[in-house]
Design a binder for these strands. Structure first.
Lengths: 119, 119
DNA sequence: CGGTATCCTTTCGGATACTG
DNA sequence: CAGTATCCGAAAGGATACCG
């Protein structure tokens, strides 16, 4: 098992809790989101984990952070990079696979919900 | 976070150590592989983890196990199901993404190696 | 606001020995 | 051969308090 293999590393980090949901949150509507907005849209996430995941995603180049230091407190916002946006395609592939091979479900708030995130 | 969401569950289990490599091993050449063959082709894996992963994959419906009880010791072999075979496509998608957005590498034995598993 | 620091529990995975 | 059983250390993740 080669820990430097990007395929393996990718599979590894998308399996971590919250990562997928953060990515999806960042691709919904607005071009960028604040830390506190993300926290609010992800009920149950702790500040530590959100911060950890955002750093991982930044390090992997999927998320870009912008800080505005002119105000106090400072404002930070996060957005998808080009590769991050492209990554959404992989999530959709997984979703397609899931819908093809697993039972479908009717409730929403799931990534595999038939109604949302179509495509 | 909905633990029943198949997209999330999928992302979760493909991030686990060895899972991807087992899947790839099963799609290489032969239609089915024995437990001991798998163990040999995956240097470093412990019997416990191999067994655990195979059960997870079976439970998720990607792998099918067949036991031949007529001999002693019994023979078991594992093969990809239809959905398991289809899943290889997702791995290839991840690979494509990796090759597009990450540095490429020359050494083999990596899933993201440019030379192998083309497509 | 946007995080860190600390503590604590749970889970994961490795090593090794053993068994029908 | 095809696994289980047992034990262990490391890492992940949750809860909560605190800070510039």
């Amino acid at each position: 098992m080669d820990k430097d293999c990007t395929v393996y590393r990718t599979a590894d980090f998308i399996g971590r809790r919250w990562t997928l949901l953060i990515l999806l949150e960042l691709c919904k509507g607005k071009p960028s989101r604040r830390y506190s907005e993300l926290k609010k849209s992800l009920p149950g996430i702790t500040p530590k984990i959100l911060s950890t995941r955002l750093k991982e995603l930044e390090k992997e180049g999927l998320v870009k952070k912008r800080v505005d230091t002119r105000t106090f407190p400072v404002r930070c916002d996060y957005s998808l990079t080009k590769s991050g946006g492209d990554f959404i395609g992989i999530i959709k592939n997984i979703k397609k696979w899931a819908l093809r091979w697993k039972f479908t479900n009717k409730t929403c708030s799931r990534l595999d919900c038939k109604e949302c995130m179509v495509g």
